[in-house]
Amino acid sequence: TPLQNNQPVEFNHAINYVNKIKNRFQGQPEVYKSFLEILHTYQKEQRNAKEAGGNYTPTLTEQQVYAQVAQLFKNQEDLLSEFGQFLPDA
């Protein structure tokens, strides 16, 4: 793939993290699905805000993303604290 050379550390970290979540919730695909939904909602909000050039306040803040993921990953402290390493302003 074109990303193979000069792969940013963030990319590798993200791949490892997604794999970890998939493995951890192998028997609960709905948890993984919910996690993806949270991420995609966050991304959509960020994009809306960017396109509006400051005239749009995202309805999903980093704190809310973190809170939603915390609820999803309850009793999985390691996954949650690792998620905090990705989130801006966490």
């Binding site: 940013p8 963030e10 990319f11 970290h13 993200a14 791949i15 993290y17 997604v18 794999n19 998939k22 996690f35 993806l36 991420l39 995609h40 966050y42 991304q43 390493q85 990705f86 989130l87 801006p88 302003d89 966490a90």
Partner: peptide
């Protein structure tokens, strides 16, 4: 080797762009 679906890849994309943004805001 990784068995990644397009959805997984998009999760990786979102997470890594979040991390980049975080790094940019910290430096």
């Amino acid at each position: 080797s990784y068995d990644f679906t397009p959805l997984d890849s998009s999760a990786v994309y979102v997470l890594s762009s979040m991390a980049r943004q975080r790094r940019a805001s910290q430096s």
